[in-house]
Design a protein around this nucleic acid. Structure first.
Lengths: 225, 225
DNA sequence: GCTGCGCTGTGATGCACCTCACAGAAGTCG
DNA sequence: CGACTTCTGTGAGGTGCATCACAGCGCAGC
């Protein structure tokens, strides 16, 4: 099972060329909302720099983060492909630069280039597998296992390798972000991480986190399924 | 937000015609496994009769049901479209009849008929929206709200309308099925349903369930988001 | 410098839901 | 028909995690 939610619509589908030729460059300051739930616009963006958070918020203000996407990932493709309203919020987690395509441009590409359509289908299939894997993971695994998986996933996607082979995840994610990513409170995340720290499984380094004992985390993560 | 997980790849995409012309008829007895997680075959099936359950099971035997599909729905399209191993189990919940297409047949259709590809993309987008909605619902809503939503959804998809306008859900779903559909135990489902029965929101009728006070359920369901 | 503000750490308390255990009811198959 | 399996109903007790409350810490800005 792939560990990342990153879309890569760009590989071999003609999208990359289309974007580089016709994409409109755009930039967002950290914290700015890029797309909002319910919005009816239908552009998509290739992220060229920075990191973006995709989330939903319930009536009572609780937030669920679906994923974070970064350079090379596409964001907003759903609305761009099917023309329906946005189904989640997209917020710039850092300063973000990207290239924007409109629904019309994409539709034209798909009509003219059947190969591109096949690539899109493959990407959507991958996303669907990943999302439904997230769903069952959330139903079947407890908080500890979900957090372990999350750390492994984040370390792979965002972490830097360290000289000794361990992985370092720098100061990008607050404990409450981690909580919103796995459906736990900030306090629970804190207690779990401290426990792992005491057990030597992870280490705090400044504001960053280093995964020392990858095998142990894998073991916790794999306890269910 | 649509309440059903049904795929309808058949609308206007040429699939229906292809299936009716080239699909191989097949039949499964109730309880038979149609596709198993990890299988490497890559056929898909249009269900013409009966009901199918899509689920995953964790190492320790806990089951999460993703959805039930019925006549007119496609099942197994992911593996057929992208050629990856099956990511869930598909089991016949009743006697099931269907028409089978192979990956090769689908690939040929998509190559020859760009319109079909657009239809597939739209369908996958819908599925992705629904699946990620399921995910956030599970993260943000409590068991009671999830069960309320489930009953509304099932009543709409599988229930028969009653003379007085209420909706009857007949004997298709055991309480432990309901639990596996929303991530609760059978006991919790039982207690919640009895509570609603006492409140006059639902009624047992033989093995069936009648939703008496739709508004009340909608209210419980909508408490979060 | 001081003043906030967002993040982290930690205890006390509560509750939603699980687990286990068992009994009765209802289909089902010889 | 009786034997068996599956489903339903219900209590007692446990627990994972939320909630609340508050204290310290580090950084940003005036």
């Amino acid at each position: 099972m792939p560990l990342t939610l990153a879309t890569d619509l760009t590989e071999d589908t003609g999208f990359r060329i289309l974007l580089e030729r016709h994409g409109r460059a755009i930039e967002f300051a950290s914290g700015r909302t890029i797309y909002g739930t319910g919005d009816k616009d239908s552009t998509m963006m290739l992220i060229t720099k920075g990191r973006v958070e995709i989330s939903r918020t319930s009536i009572d203000g609780r937030r669920s983060i679906l994923t974070h996407l970064g350079a090379g990932d596409m964001v907003g493709e759903l609305a761009a492909l099917d023309g329906m309203p946005r189904s989640a919020d997209v917020v710039a987690a850092t300063r973000v630069q990207g290239l924007v395509l409109t629904r019309a441009q994409i539709a034209a590409l798909l009509r003219d280039n059947p190969e591109a359509a096949l690539g899109v289908i493959e990407t959507l299939c991958r996303r669907l597998r990943e999302t439904s894997a997230m769903y069952t993971a959330h139903v079947l695994a407890d908080g500890q296992a979900r957090l372990a998986r999350l750390l492994l996933h984040l370390a792979e996607k965002w972490g830097e390798p360290m000289p000794d082979g361990r992985r370092r995840l720098s100061e990008k994610f607050s404990q409450s972000d981690l909580g919103d990513l796995v459906g736990l409170t900030r306090e629970s995340v804190n207690r779990q991480i401290r426990e792992w720290e005491q057990a030597g499984i992870v280490m705090r380094q400044g504001r960053g986190l280093v995964i020392c004992d990858l095998a142990a985390l894998l073991c916790v993560a794999g306890a269910a399924e």
